[in-house]
């Protein structure tokens, strides 16, 4: 392995990692919001919107991100709907992630005992207060492992952003590979960089989950 080559290209990987991480996190943040929204629409059985949310979740969960991106980036402009590559990246990731986050939130909410909801109602809380103080904290605690798994999943999925001609980690590596020919070093650094991005997320997930377990749930 060529150490000098690796050192020389650390900045390239850093800039690629920054793109991956930044757009990954934008996507994650938007996914959480969209997921929560969809979950609430379904929980409150809001007419029409609930069905739309349900349909969207099925559509997003059952198609590959790569195909979604091609449709967004190469298909839609032909009927006059144009987004920048960066916008496509965030929209695509949010479209995919929102559905997964919605499912994670849903399983969290479903895990909250019906009697807890009744107990909240019985001390005179409004539905909003009940959600905020009684249901949501418990639902979130249950949903946390799934939510973190989704975060890692979504950051990994950003690897297809290279089809949008974005200089993310994958594209940086691919460019170096085709121009320099040092395939082994290029791929080695690619693995290491992904690991450096995802390992902290995973450690954070473990810490949060441990803390939640410690705080103690279960009647």
């Amino acid at each position: 392995m060529d150490g000098a080559f690796i050192l020389a290209h650390v900045p390239d990987y850093l800039s690629g990692a920054w793109v991956t991480l930044r757009f990954g996190l934008y996507g994650v943040a938007c996914s959480l919001l969209l997921g929560l929204l969809c979950c609430l629409l379904r929980y409150f059985r809001v007419p029409v919107l609930r069905q739309i949310a349900g349909g969207y979740i099925e559509l997003a969960r059952n198609t590959p991100l790569l195909v979604q991106l091609f449709f967004l980036y190469a298909g839609l402009p032909r009927v006059g709907i144009k987004f920048s590559a960066e916008a496509c990246a965030v929209i695509g990731l949010t479209f995919l992630g929102g559905a997964y986050m919605a499912e994670a939130f849903r399983s969290g909410i479903e895990s909250v005992d019906k009697t807890q909801v009744e107990a909240g109602a019985c001390i005179g809380l409004t539905m909003g207060q009940n959600i905020r103080y009684v249901i949501f904290p418990q639902a979130l605690a249950t949903a946390i492992p799934a939510l973190f798994a989704n975060v890692i999943f979504l950051i990994k999925e950003t690897s297809v952003f290279s089809v949008l001609a974005m200089m993310d980690l994958m594209n940086v590596a691919d460019t170096l590979r085709t121009s320099g020919g040092r395939t082994v070093e290029v791929l080695f650094m690619l693995m290491v960089t992904y690991l450096l991005i995802l390992l902290p997320v995973s450690v954070l997930a473990t810490l949060v989950e441990r803390r939640l377990r410690y705080t103690g749930f279960g009647n």
Binding site: A119, I123, G124, L125, F217, N219
Partner: peptide, 21 residues
């Protein structure tokens, strides 16, 4: 405004239903 009514009626169940968190 059902919650306004329930504020005046206390209820305790078989399963305690304290909020565990």
């Amino acid at each position: 405004d059902l919650h306004l009514v329930r504020q005046k009626i206390g209820m305790v169940f078989q399963s305690y239903d304290l909020f565990p968190h």
